[in-house]
Amino acid sequence: MEYVKSQKYNTPELLAKIMGPNPFKLQEEMLRNHKIPAGSLVCDLGSGQGLTSVMLVKDYGFTVYAADLWSDPQENRQFFDGMGLTHKQIIPVKVDATALPFEKDFFDAIISTDSYNFWGRDPEYLDAKLLPYVKSGGYIYACVPGMKKDCHDNLPKELLLSWTPEQLIYLRDTAYWNKIVNSSRNAEVISVYEMESNEEVWADWLMQENEIAVNDRKTWSAGGGKYLNFIAFILQKK
Results as ranks from 00 to 15, higher is better:
G137T: 09
Y193H: 08
K88D: 15
E124V: 13
V54E: 02
W70T: 14
I110Q: 10
M147I: 03
L126V: 13
G223T: 06
Q27T: 13
C143E: 05
G84R: 05
N22T: 10
L26P: 00
I234D: 07
N182Q: 12
C143H: 02
P132Q: 05
N215S: 11
D216N: 15
P23F: 13
S183K: 11
Y3L: 04
Q49R: 12
D59T: 08
V95D: 02
D150H: 06
D72W: 02
I36C: 07
P21G: 09
D150Q: 10
R32V: 01
Y193I: 01
D204M: 08
A213Y: 05
A67V: 08
T174I: 15
D59H: 00
M55Q: 15
R172E: 03
D127P: 06
S184D: 11
F79Q: 14
P145S: 07
I110P: 04
E28I: 08
V189Y: 09
H87L: 05
Y60M: 12
L26D: 05
G225Y: 01
A175F: 00
C43A: 15
Y176S: 01
L14S: 10
K148G: 06
Q167P: 05
N33T: 09
G84M: 00
A222I: 10
G120Q: 04
F102S: 08
D81P: 00
E196D: 11
K238T: 13
P73D: 01
D108G: 10
S221T: 12
Y227V: 03
G20W: 01
S221C: 11
E196S: 02
S112Q: 03
D105T: 10
F118H: 13
D173R: 06
E124Q: 09
T63V: 11
A142K: 07
K237P: 06
K8G: 06
S115T: 15
P21V: 07
E200N: 12
I180D: 03
K35M: 12
E13T: 12
T164E: 04
Y139R: 02
F230I: 07
R121T: 12
I111T: 08
V214F: 03
E124K: 09
A16F: 06
F79W: 07
Q7M: 07
D216L: 03
K25S: 07
Q78L: 14
L206Y: 14
N198C: 11
L126A: 11
L56R: 06
G48A: 09
F230H: 14
E211F: 10
P156V: 01
M19A: 11
I212S: 13
L235D: 06
G223D: 00
P145K: 00
D122Y: 04
I234G: 05
E199N: 13
L168N: 09
Y3A: 02
R172Q: 08
D72I: 11
W177E: 06
S71T: 11
L69G: 11
V201L: 10
M195I: 02
W220F: 15
W163G: 12
A109R: 02
V181S: 03
S183L: 12
L168E: 03
A232Q: 01
L56S: 07
N210I: 06
